[in-house]
Each structure stands twice: as C-alpha cells, then as structure tokens.
Design a protein around this nucleic acid. Structure first.
Lengths: 234, 234
DNA sequence: CGAACTGTTGAATTGGGTCAATCCATGTGG
DNA sequence: CCACATGGATTGACCCAATTCAACAGTTCG
C-alpha cells in the first residue's frame, strides 16, 4: 500500500511501532472469537487468516480472507464485542496493538489516518462486490470470481505470481465463503477443470483461462486503477 | 453520530462547511452512475438514497440504503470511476463536496478523521452481516433481517419511531437488496403477515413481533453497544 | 382514460442442497 | 513398517426452496 503514498520517516516509524510486538500462531489457531470482548487489533505480518461468523443454525459464513500486510480485527475500533471470529488458515505472524495506540497514530499522523480510511473503503467495495456475487449470481460465477479475487490480492503482495496459487482452503471453506455447500463447490470446480478453465495439483490451482473466468464470474479487478492522488502530500 | 464524540466548535464548523452546497434531487433521480468518473462525495441531508450495481446479465444488486446524515459515494476516495450507482429513493437533499475538501478536513481535524474511519468500519460490519444473510440464510430470514436493519437505522435518526416505518421500496427492490425475486419476496411478506409478524397499510410496515423477527432473521442490532471511548478526546 | 408500474397468486421448472457411500492422502501410535 | 483413524474430495440419487412464467388486480399519473 505504501506504494501509493510516500510516507515520511516519522510516519514510517510510527507505523512500525504498531508492529513492535509479534505473536506466532499455528494453522487453525483461533485469534479472536466472535462475541468476546476485544481491545486489540492486528497487523498480519505473515501467513493467512480468515474472518467468519457462525449463524444460530450452525452454518458458517466466511467474511474475508486476509493476507500479509492487512489490518485485521478493526471492528474492535467500533464494538466492544467482536462481531466476527478470526482463525489462522496457515501458520502466521501477527502484530497485535491496542486500539489506543491507533488513536495516538490517528491523532499525530493525519495522512496515516487518511490512509486507514482509504484501506477501509477498499475493503468496503470488495465486500459489496462479493455481496453482488452472492445475491445475484450462479454457483459457477461465485466460485470463479472468488478464485480471481484471491489471486489478484496475492499478486498485490507478490509480483512473482502469474497464473497459479495456493488456495489453502478446503472446498468446504470455499463454500462457506461463497454461500454454497462443499458438494456443490466440488461440482463447480470439477466442471471448470473439465472445461479447461483451471487445473489443480495438490492444493495448488492454476488459472488456464483468466479472461473466460472473469466473464463467467462477472469479475472486475478493483486493485488496479486506484486514484489516491488526492491524499495529503507529505 | 455526533452523540458519540463531543465535537469542538472548530470541528463542527469544518464539518458544516462540507454542507455548504445543497442540491435537491427528485425521487428516482440518478445521483451517480456506475463506471463514470467521480470526484465528488455527498452528505445526504434529507431523504433516502440507494446504491446498487447492475450485473452483465441485467440483474441488479442493491448494496445499501442510505438515510439522512449518511456519507455517500465515499468510494470516490479510492477509485476514479464509481464502482456503484446512486439513485434517490425519495425526494432528497444532497450536499456534494470534492474529495480534496475531504483531504483538508482529514489533515486539519484528526478526530474527525478518526470518526470517518469509525463510520466506515460500521458500514463494513453492516455489509458483513448482510453477506452472512445472503450467503447462509433462507428467504424468510433475509427479508426479516432486512426489515429489522432498516427500522433500526431509522430509529437512530428519529427517536419517535417505535414499531412502524415507511419502507419506500418496492418488493422488487427488496428482492434486489436481499437476493430474491420480487415474486418470492411477496410470498415471504404475505406469509409473515399471515403469521402475525408484520402488518401493512399503504407502503407502511408495522412490526408486530420484533423478537420473533430477530429470531427468524438471525438479526443482531449493531447500532447499540458501540464502544467509541477510545476516540481522541477534544 | 389508458399506460405503466406494483402487487398477488398458481403451476411448472430447476439450481443447488441433502444424504450417503467411497476413495484417497496423511498421520500416528505401536 | 504396518494397521487403523481422520479429514478432505468425489460421485450418484433424490429432494426442495426459490425461480420462472403467466395471468390478473389495483394504483398512480401523465
């Protein structure tokens, strides 16, 4: 994200201070449980994390998958009890910090505050895209756009990624993210494989025809084409 | 929202400056068209507005309904082309301001910046609730939670509201908001009416058994129980 | 007054869910 | 090194919630 805003030394230091403390967590570890009191948020330094909620009938909705560099748990800035659970999808490194540290940061570094606002807006738009996907498209489309979103977000962090990536999600989890059962996710994936759109080996997925997948999933890459010039200059 | 943060005179003035210009729009007026270039955002001073996207197959997903006091179009802070359309659901009054005005505001008033961040987080959580609703619950549940969300948001602005409100949405629009067809929305509403959960006259809806509706819709009111004490003090 | 929405209802259809069996890869403890 | 347990992937048969299609009624408004 820093590529969009030339941070001053002072700002850089202030942000780095948030990452002073580190906590390693194992795959599957619960980082935050829904409805429990929270005062911390995190920078995800390495690994992969998901947020989700469990409905009263036991079904799960995965809200978002997070990657290195993301701020997570920022709902704690508004609610005293967490609206969502956070679980590590792979061994991860978290940098926890108190919401009061965030206050100091926002007070002293208005440009960083603006940046936080912007990041929050990006996440909002990403959620609306997924809302449209769940509300108005077919199972096939949902799976396609989900895969595309994940790979595009991985590309933001790692320029080396071309057309294949490690999903680190079971088909059940994919289903819980896009509102389908694991059985039906499997059918869609196998169908996409049969159609030559993707291929798989181990947990690794290769997108063989990204153009077609974008069409199927009604997908738009929002991560290019940002306009952050209006942000305060150093 | 100001009830949560005692703004100083200076801050109040700065916020008021955003509302210097007014624009009246009629019901049905397009305020912002998806994919068109944008540089403005708005404070919705009076009336009701919705945001939505149209998918390539022509179907529509309503992303959010906005009420007086809401900031709208804030995606313009990140994207040069609007990711969503905005249309007035009733005659409305908008206060447009340029994103550069937002920059000045954020630079000079860190507490206001923090507040904007917080509002943005609240909207994010609201979207995740709806995501869970679309992804993992039945038609009945979706309609129930949608109605509850609307009435709770109206209550925030108007303490006089008890159990009835004007939806100002057609059944087709409700469907486009919760991912159903208008036909099925009608069936759910009539069923809820037959079950004595709601009643209707004109466009007005009365919730006869809110407790039961919350149960059915897996609904949690997020608007109570906020924790904003950490926000910078004046 | 007529056109164009909006709401309502029934009948037929279907996309995705449910249930259940089987396969397969990884452990893991003895 | 083997026997067995466990969790995910895969597939088929059947089911059902929601969609589609279609007809009609009530309202609004130019």
């Amino acid at each position: 994200m820093e590529k969009h805003l030339n941070l001053t030394e002072r700002e850089r230091t202030a942000l780095a201070r948030l990452e002073e403390n580190q906590r390693k967590v194992k795959r599957g570890a619960m980082i935050q449980r829904a409805n429990e009191t929270i005062t911390e948020l995190f920078v995800l330094r390495a690994g992969r994390v998901m947020s989700y909620v469990i409905l009263p009938d036991g079904s799960r909705q995965i809200l978002r998958v997070y990657f290195a560099g993301d701020f997570i748990g920022s709902a704690s800035t508004v609610y005293s009890k967490s609206p969502e659970s956070l679980v590590a999808l792979s061994d991860s490194v978290l940098c926890p910090f108190d919401k009061h540290a965030l206050r100091v940061l926002l007070e002293e570094h208005p440009r960083v505050a603006a940046l936080m606002f912007v990041l929050s807006q990006m996440e909002r738009v990403s959620l609306t895209d997924r809302l449209a996907s769940l509300g108005r498209s077919s199972a096939r489309a949902r799976v396609a756009s989900f895969l595309l979103d994940i790979i595009d977000r991985l590309r933001l962090m790692d320029d080396g990624i071309t057309d294949s990536f490690d999903l680190k999600l079971t088909q059940e989890e994919i289903g819980d993210a896009v509102g389908l059962t694991s059985v039906h996710v499997n059918r869609m994936i196998r169908q996409m494989e049969a159609d030559g759109l993707i291929s798989r080996s181990n947990g690794r997925i290769t997108l063989l025809n990204e153009k077609a997948l974008e069409e199927i999933g009604h997908y738009t890459n929002r991560y290019t084409d940002l306009d952050l010039d209006w942000l305060p200059n150093s």
